[in-house]
Amino acid sequence: MAAGGDHGSPDSYRSPLASRYASPEMCFVFSDRYKFRTWRQLWLWLAEAEQTLGLPITDEQIQEMKSNLENIDFKMAAEEEKRLRHDVMAHVHTFGHCCPKAAGIIHLGATSCYVGDNTDLIILRNALDLLLPKLARVISRLADFAKERASLPTLGFTHFQPAQLTTVGKRCCLWIQDLCMDLQNLKRVRDDLRFRGVKGTTGTQASFLQLFEGDDHKVEQLDKMVTEKAGFKRAFIITGQTYTRKVDIEVLSVLASLGASVHKICTDIRLLANLKEMEEPFEKQQIGSSAMPYKRNPMRSERCCSLARHLMTLVMDPLQTASVQWFERTLDDSANRRICLAEAFLTADTILNTLQNISEGLVVYPKVIERRIRQELPFMATENIIMAMVKAGGSRQDCHEKIRVLSQQAASVVKQEGGDNDLIERIQVDAYFSPIHSQLDHLLDPSSFTGRASQQVQRFLEEEVYPLLKPYESVMKVKAELCL
């Protein structure tokens, strides 16, 4: 049975990233139509530049190519590739079939990587351009969430054990800070992308030097003109047959890092959902379990974690691919890159769409948070109580021993009897502590235990987050809708 299948058929496997999760716009960027249309555009740009620099290419040939950029006979191309065992030459023939007058000058002087690699770089750039505003929107939604809850005390956790208090907004800023680093890295790697350009079979530009009869300047002009037509500021000066596969490492490393950030955020949300302090959106008709109707599973956060793990592992592909590119190139890269580049971007696209949807509907339960604080705060307040007693004339050592005994009794009630923490009640009825009984409410005010959390939130948002989001103001209103 021949390899390949009808990918629109229910009898043929289709990647869930495309069929179930990723956005239509990201799927289109990695589609065959987008790819092969870009090949034709690159052939047109090459012909236009070659004509401008004096090669015998007519206006009629150029116009014929322009008129057929979208006229792609995919069936013919597939048949040609089956016959020739070469995808680029299959599309040269297919393009030439609908451009008979231009057929002889299509791909003039070029090698397969002229269309293959340059198209990949265009796709990487455009895919990054799709991700950047999506990530900015996630940051914006979380920034709104953090600002609104900047002063809401909550129990902090280290080692997932109760620690000092923080605020809900401050905790959210930990998430935002990681995503801001990801946004900066995505922008950097996007701006650092260079075009492969017009380089020939081993990167020496020998074929173009021959076409222009040894004119170095025209060869350099050709490279520059096509690079500018493709919208790049610069091209690699040095290439082998391909652009260095280190570029793929750079791009997928940034995406993998984004995956790590999203995994951490969504894990926190899942843990908070278990504590009943916070939940992701839950639709009115949504079913959490087929057997347990009360369940409210954090399905979206779980999906993000599941896909983020996949995204983090994909960076190993370009690392290994770059390491086995012998001399000017081997074909070890080809099949692998067809999979890992598309999957990385479709996965990143999915987790950003999902995280935006989550961040637009996060639900906080202040009463649950308050109750958990009441359970733990008495123990945390013991040092403040000791200091207040010393100020009232008591002995630190005597007070410490009193607190120690009462704390152990209260802990026994919590752990052995399943009761509430009654340390404060014990202190309130103990005559030894009568000098500070009137101060206990103040000493137990949760806001006095959150330090500068709310001020940190305000400063972080104003100095770091809002300036970073400013270039994306025009796209901030787009909502994230999930079908599944």
Rank of each mutant, 00 (worst) to 15 (best):
G4T: 13
S9W: 14
P10Q: 12
S12V: 15
S15L: 08
P16H: 01
A22N: 12
M26D: 14
C27R: 08
V29Q: 15
Y34W: 03
R37I: 10
T38H: 10
Q41W: 05
W45R: 02
A47S: 08
G54Y: 15
L55F: 08
Q61C: 13
Q63A: 01
E64H: 03
K66D: 01
L69S: 05
L69N: 15
N71A: 04
I72L: 04
K75C: 11
M76G: 06
M76C: 12
A77S: 03
A77N: 00
A78P: 10
K82Y: 00
R83W: 02
R83V: 08
L84Q: 11
L84W: 07
D87V: 01
P100I: 12
K101C: 15
A102Q: 05
G104Y: 03
A110P: 03
V115D: 03
D120Y: 00
I123W: 07
L132F: 09
K134M: 00
A136M: 15
V138S: 07
I139H: 04
D144Y: 10
E148R: 04
R149V: 02
S151N: 14
S151I: 08
L155C: 06
F157S: 04
F157W: 01
T158V: 03
F160N: 00
Q161S: 03
Q161G: 01
L165A: 04
R171N: 01
C172G: 13
Q177V: 06
M181R: 05
M181I: 06
D182T: 08
D182R: 05
K187D: 04
K187C: 09
K187A: 12
R188W: 01
V189E: 00
R190W: 05
D191N: 14
R194L: 04
R194S: 05
F195Y: 02
F195Q: 00
K199R: 09
G200A: 02
T201W: 04
T204R: 06
L209T: 04
Q210T: 09
E213D: 00
H217G: 03
L222G: 06
L222Y: 04
D223W: 15
V226E: 00
K233Y: 08
R234M: 15
G240L: 13
G240S: 11
Q241I: 03
Y243L: 08
D248F: 02
L252G: 08
S253K: 07
L258Y: 13
L258V: 15
G259R: 14
V262P: 03
H263I: 14
K264G: 11
I265R: 13
C266Y: 14
A273P: 01
N274W: 11
M278C: 13
F282D: 00
P293F: 12
K295P: 13
K295E: 00
R296L: 11
M299S: 13
S301G: 14
S301W: 13
E302D: 08
C305N: 15
A308F: 05
M312Q: 01
L314P: 09
V315A: 03
L319D: 15
Q320Y: 07
Q320F: 12
A322D: 13
T330Y: 03
L331S: 01
D332E: 08
D333M: 15
R337G: 09
C340L: 03
A342G: 08
A344Q: 01
F345W: 09
D349W: 12
E360W: 14
L362V: 09
Y365M: 06
Y365W: 15
E370N: 01
R372Q: 03
I373T: 13
E376F: 09
A381S: 15
E383P: 14
I386Y: 04
M387I: 14
M389G: 00
K391M: 15
K391A: 14
A392S: 09
S395M: 11
D398S: 11
R404T: 07
L406V: 02
Q408A: 05
Q409R: 03
E417L: 14
D420N: 00
N421D: 11
D430C: 07
Y432G: 03
S438F: 15
P446C: 01
S447M: 12
S447F: 00
P467Y: 06
K470F: 15
Y472A: 10
E473W: 12
S474A: 11
V475K: 08
A480G: 15
L482H: 11
L482V: 02
